[in-house]
């Protein structure tokens, strides 16, 4: 386990050192950015709409019972942008993009394509890892922002349509505006960037250390996704504490 952690940290350091070559890899960055952002957009939209809705559905009646219906926008807004949107988007990207990266790099490792790069004096970190890391660190926070906006709308619809809550759009968004500021949204996006580093580096490291044939690739994908999600949930607490300190 410590060896795995060491390898991941070494890879992170080597990726950081390769940053000056980022501009030369811009074509690959855009390709990966498309995978992280554009291709995940529909799924993110549907998920966020329902997360916002279910949040309003769960909290709305409880608040309404106590005569606090006007706070529903604030509760949904804050929960979404500080916690739910970054975590859910990170899990979505880990499952959709991280698994694909682990499988792709893993298969390149098994079928000697990574070795072929090394023999051509092309650093696999610069060629394979760096563009993916930049793409996910840029793409995931934007996806979080999108998820927050869609989630708010989902919450507004349920708050309006649900007979136990039944507040107007105007009242919902007024409450949201009173309770949520730009810093809260930035808080979520910063978390998204932190999760992006975790997903990217774990999935790339797993891919590069793949051994064996197709079964090895399967194991790599499973480990990459499970480890990513575990670390997202684990480090979420520490990120939250850190960002609260900045508050």
């Amino acid at each position: 386990m410590f060896q795995d952690a060491g390898e991941v940290l070494m890879l992170l350091w080597r990726t950081f050192r390769a940053l000056p070559c980022a501009w030369r890899q811009r074509r690959k960055v855009f390709e990966q950015l498309f995978e992280v952002g554009n291709a995940s957009l529909l799924m993110a939209c549907v998920l966020s709409l329902f997360i916002g809705g279910v949040l309003a559905l769960q909290t709305g009646p409880v608040l309404a019972e106590r005569g606090l219906s006007n706070f529903i926008g604030q509760v949904v807004g804050l929960s979404l942008c500080r916690e739910l949107a970054p975590v859910m988007m990170a899990i979505l990207v880990a499952g959709r993009v991280g698994s694909a990266w682990a499988a792709e790099i893993g298969s390149m490792t098994v079928y000697q394509e990574v070795d072929a790069l090394r023999t051509m004096n092309i650093d696999p970190v610069r060629y394979l890892v760096l563009p993916r890391m930049i793409a996910i660190v840029v793409g995931l926070p934007v996806l979080v922002l999108f998820s927050v906006l869609v989630g708010w709308v989902g919450g507004a619809f349920i708050a309006y349509l649900n007979y136990q809550v039944g507040i107007s759009f105007h009242a919902y968004f007024s409450s949201l505006r009173n309770g949520v500021d730009a810093w809260d949204v930035l808080h979520g996006m910063a978390k998204g960037a932190g999760f992006a580093v975790i997903i990217g580096i774990i999935c790339c490291a797993q891919g590069l250390s793949t051994i064996g044939g197709p079964r090895g690739i399967g194991r790599t994908v499973t480990k990459a996704v499970v480890n990513s999600i575990a670390f997202i949930l684990l480090l979420d607490y520490f990120f939250t504490r850190f960002l609260m300190l900045l508050d």
Binding site: E104, Y111, L117
Partner: peptide, 25 residues
């Protein structure tokens, strides 16, 4: 240079991109 048993061409690139990879990178 090394010529691998399987060829080890990068499957995500065309043959032309593979062959010119050293020069372009």
């Amino acid at each position: 240079a090394m010529v691998f048993q399987s060829g080890a061409l990068l499957n995500s690139l065309t043959v032309g991109e593979n062959v010119g990879l050293y020069l372009s990178e």
